[in-house]
Each structure stands twice: as C-alpha cells, then as structure tokens.
Nucleic acid binder design. Sequence first.
DNA 1: GGTGTGTAGGTTTTT
DNA 2: CCTACACACC
Length: 764
Amino acid sequence: MNYLDELNEEQRKAVEQTEGPVMVLAGAGSGKTRVLTYRIAHLINKGVPPFNILSLTFTNKAAREMKDRIGKIVGESTAKSIWMGTFHSVFARILRSEAEKIGYPSNFTIYDTDDSKRLVKQIIKDLNLDDKVYKPNLVRNRISSAKNNLLSPQAYKDNPTLAKEDAQAKKPEIGRIYEIYDKRLFKAGAMDFDDLLFKTNILLRDFPDVLFKYQEKFRYILVDEYQDTNFSQYIIVKALASRFENICVVGDDAQSIYSFRGANIQNILNFKKDYPDTETFKLEQNYRSTQNIVEAANSLIDKNQEQFKKNVWTSNDTGTKIKLTQALSDNEEGLNVAHEIYALHSTHNAAYSNFAILYRTNAQSRAMEDAMRKLNIPYKIYGGLSFYQRKEIKDLMAYFRLVINPQDEDALKRVINYPKRGIGKTTIDRLTLYGNENDIGLWELINSLPAHSVNIPGSARNKIAQFAELIKSFQNVAEKKNAYDTGTIIAKSTGILKEHHNDKSAEGVARYENIQELLNSMKEFVEDDEAENEKDLPSFVQDIPLLTDQDQDSEEDQNKVTLMTIHASKGLEFPNVFIVGMEEELFPSQMSTQSRSDLEEERRLFYVALTRSEERCYLSFARSRYKWGNLIHCEPSRFLQEIDPDFVDASGVTPNQPSKDPFATKGDWGSSMGGGSDRSASTQRRSVTPPRQKMMRVPKTDTSNFKGDDTANLREGMEVEHGRFGRGTVVSIEVAGNRKAVVDFEEHGKKQLLLKFAKLKILN
DNA sequence: GGTGTGTAGGTTTTT
DNA sequence: CCTACACACC
C-alpha cells in the first residue's frame, strides 16, 4: 500500500494520527476527501474492523463515492461493512432497529418537509387559528429549530424567552401547535427529518445500554463537513464519541453555509474546548484552483470577522483573471453565458461537463435554461422539485405509505379520494372531526364505521368501506409479492396509471412517464442482486424521503453543462464556473443584509462558489431581471467590490451610472485590460461525474405572451382563440351582469368564460 | 360531490 | 410568474 505517498506531510499526519480527537481544518480544494478516504483505509489496514467505523457525510452521494474509493484500496466487501452515510440515513437505520424502545414501529414513515408542512397546516386549521397569522411555513420553521436545539414541546412551552418572542410576534399558540404536531406524528407512526436526530438523542439519553452498544460499536468516528452540523447532531456525536474519543472531524469554517437549517459554526470553532487533547491539522495547500482564483477567494473571505485564520495557497499556475460581465437583463445574462460556453466548447474543445452555472436561488435557473436551449447546449439541472416531490409521485407513494403504515393519516387523506371515488371534503371533514374528538385514528374509524354514529350517509359509508377493503387487499399483496409487483398492482388497480395515460397533454404525458420511471426504479431495486436488503415494498419506500436529486447518478447525461444552486455545488469542482446574478438583494439575499452574521454567511457562500472553479471563473450581474413577472432594476452586488481588483478582469463592465454605480469609485475596474493568458483547455484536469436528473421537465403551455383582443364586439359565431384552450367558436353571449360567452373549443369542448378575464383573440 | 375560475400570496438556500 | 385554495355553479 503506497497510498501514504500520495499525501503531503500535513495530510499524512492527519491520516496517521488515528487515536484520540483530531480536527482537520481543510481549506477549499485542499484534499479533504482524500484525507478522509485514506484515513479510513489506514484504520482498516491497521486492523480496525470496518464495522467499528462510523463515517458521517453530508450527502449520500459523498458517502457512496468515498466507499467506492476505499473499496479500491481495502477491497469492496470490506468497505461495504463500514457505516457510512448522512446523519439522517445512518440514524434512521439505527432508529428502525431500536424503534420499539421509544414506542415507534420499526417501519415508521419518514415525513419530508412537504408532508410536515401539510400536517402543520392541518393542525392550524383544526385549532381554528388564522393561517395568515400562523403561517404554516413560519410555524414549521420554528418547530424545526426547536427540535434541532433539542427542545421538546414541553420545554418549548416552559421556555420564557420563546414564550416572549411568540407573544411579541402575536403567535402565542406555537407551543401548543408544536405539542399537537408532535402527538400527531407519533400517532401516525411518523418522524420528520428533525425527529431522526431528535429521537436518536432521546434513544441514546434514555437507554444507557443502547448508548453503550453503539459506543462500543463505533470506536472510530469521522464527521465530514463538521462546520455544518447543528446542535442535535453535535450532541449525538458527542455522546457516541465520549467513550473512546476516537473522533475525527473535518471541515472548513469558511464554508459553513447551512445556518438556516440550524447548523452552528460554533461546533467547529469550539471543538478544542470539547476535547482538550485535540490534535489539529491545517490543510492549506489548494490543489484545485489557479492562483488567481485562490487569491481572489482569500481576499474575499478576509472580510469576515468570525473565522480561523488560514493561509490557503497553491502552487498551480497563475491562470486567467476572474472575468466580470454585465448584462441588461437576466435573459441577456443567460445568453452571454451560453455564448461563452459555446465558444470555449468549439474553440478549445472543452467538454460540456466541464462547465457549471451556479446561482443563489432556484428561480434563476429559468433564464439560464432558456439560453442553453436556444444555443442547443446540453444541460442538466439540479434542485427545484426533486423527482420524489412531484405530485404524481407523491400520490402513488402515499398509497405505498398507507399500505405499509395505515396509521399515516397524511397518506390516508391524500389518497382516500384520489382517484375520485366519491368521498368528498364534507365526509372527510366529518371523519376527521369525529376522530379528533373521540381520539380514534382515521384508519381505525373507517374500519369500524358501523359502530360509530358519525353523520355520514349510507352511500358514502359504502364507498369508504370499499376503500378500506382496497387498501387491505394491497396489504395482502405487499406481504406476498416484491416491491415492483406490488407497486405495479397498486398503480394499475387504483386507476392512477390509466388516468395519467389518458391525459394526452404534454404535462400529462410527462406525469405518466414519471410514474413509469418510479416503477422502473422499483424494478431495478428488486433485481439488484448486489444489495443485501429485502426486496419488499417497505424496504423500497423506507428511506426515499432522504434521497435527493443528486443521489441519482447515471452513465447517460455525461456530457452536459451543470446548473445548480451554490448550496448544491458544495464539495464539487469544475474547470469552468459561471456565477450569475451577482446583484444586491439577490446575492447577498435581501433576507441576510440585516445582521452581520447573516451577511458573513452569504459571503462564505460566495467563497464556496468561487472555490468550485479549477481554471476559469466568470461573474456576472444583470441590470434588470424579472421577479414574479415584473421587471425590476438591479444594483451590482457589494461582494464584487470585496474581491481584490488585481484578480478581476472587469473590462466588460462599463461604469455607466457615475453617482450610484459602485464602480465609479473603483476606477481601476472599468479600465483594467482584458484577461491574462488563455490556457488551453487540454490542460483541464479531473471532471466531476455528472449526476442525472430522471424526470422530464414538464413543458408548460406558455400563456404569458398571449394577448387578448377587446371583446366588446364579440358576436355569436365568431372564431376565437384562447391561450389555453386553443381555437373555438362562440356559441352564445350573455350580457346580463358580468358578460359571459359560451365557446365551443375544437379540442376542449364547450366552456363558459367570463369576458372580463378570459383573454380571447378574435380570428375573423 | 365535482368542476372551473378567480384571487391571494409566495422565493433564499436542503437533509 | 406559478401554485394552492376558496367560492360559485353544475
């Protein structure tokens, strides 16, 4: 084994110091993953059994890649038994095996953010609270941060500070909502994301034998991206490590970008206090980027007060300067980027996979996508709605959830009348109310309906009974058949598959294909002989909420430009990086400009973005962009001035607003000459394996540009065109009250339209 | 109970 | 701009 030869001195020390607490402060691009990988391999070579190693990563993908690399050194089967994954997935696994200790079924359902929001909303409604005051999102965030700080509902209600805050915000009932939310989750046999950590803490706190077991098991613990751990995660790690203190945390305070999710940068800043014997290793040599990029990034992050002082340097080439450009609009910005990519692709023969476009918010992807399509540049996009969050997928998945865990009321409500089977809102409301008042779960209630005096007519009772029978029949199927067969039977016999198949609109076709894609992935799951897990439906469904888009890699889609948020780009690298939307209110986000610490986090985010680039980095801003359909004016981001101008080529930017323009005071930017030497693209190093996005982008009928004519002269028999319904003939016009017209559309049949709103174009 | 249509309101960032 | 819901009508 000569892997130690592939490390520099500091890296090697961090690998060889296997015992006791170790903190590795790893600057961007300094070979952090390499250290983690080799450290684990080294442990195993020294004789540590792989099942005694726990390695916590930030994404499942990172875990998979690391496992692969370790497998190449110590052998695949050995690498397989290392416990490696995200906090959420690792502890979900542990919770499932210990579930009954804390009163949960081992097949508990994991609620994603969307499910949890629905539940909060439902509770607010049940309590007759005004959802304009108690905004579900806001309430959920508050509950979430309570959980991440290990505050139970009782602790929340007893906390004077929180009570005061809520009272001042005129939302005194949040504690009560939290309490009910918690009870309902428990009754539904469900945990939200935060619970996976919270309940793990409960488990380790209340069951010393369990704690002892896992302490003994995980004798060596490694935590990647430690700067992004929250309090709840911090306590778990602390508890598990307290026995042997063989804990190695790796991170970079300069890249802490998840405080909105409860991450606490203090965890890494205080590590030495927690473990006084800590050996600290600083990795400061950057192997990823050119000198220009490294120094530009250093000059930026220097503006932050709160940080460990590091001296990140590189022996790489000087490289080209960071290129700054401006555009008149977001669309033009997109086209500028697309043209540049096209040029580099055709003149330097650079593969499309060598490019990434990074932005602050998902909403910015549209202008970029449009531009890519216009120039026929292949691209793939991350984020936004993930596959498993799409409505058609969630609907079918809700059947799966219900079959596995009939206590899951969110799932039940989601499908009891989907597809339509005549169990309407009134009926469901009555059931829910009765259930809440008599403390009976919905599933139990609909199965014992004759015994209850709920005000529900006989016809509806029959339909409910049929529904219950349907679910029970699925439960029978699920017990005997594998996930794929069960899934197919459910999709077919509920009529879901047919419903989407019958919808021939572009959206309908995409939905049908998505359902097929889900079934395909179930088939793959069942036929995968490598994986040792069970092949039944529960095994398939279990951890799906923990998957993200990035977890779906594939060989196809290799040569494409990557579009993603900066957050999603963490840990990745690309030869050419475009950071777009460098504007005030957007980046830094308007939410962050109030406090210094928030602004510093935005700056770290920008630092992360810059340090993704290996060779070339482009910054751009637009003078105007569309926000909610309105054109708004934009000012260049303050961050642009914070980079040392020596490393920036701003020749493409004209300082045209002398008084307000921040460049006016920085004459050196507008006048600096065009970029440095242009290195050949053939020197480009590693490229990142592009992940794939499985779902189709739903082509939407674009009605935004559709202009209606004045309908004052509309008469019967006229040919008209409607933005959504297409062409049709006016059948009749009603003048009384609001003017209405009945139009017989060629493809959509007769519709009654209010002329005040309907945009109709008169064709003859 | 189902359907369509209008209106309000929402955007950081994600496991 | 898009989506989710409330309301009016069938």
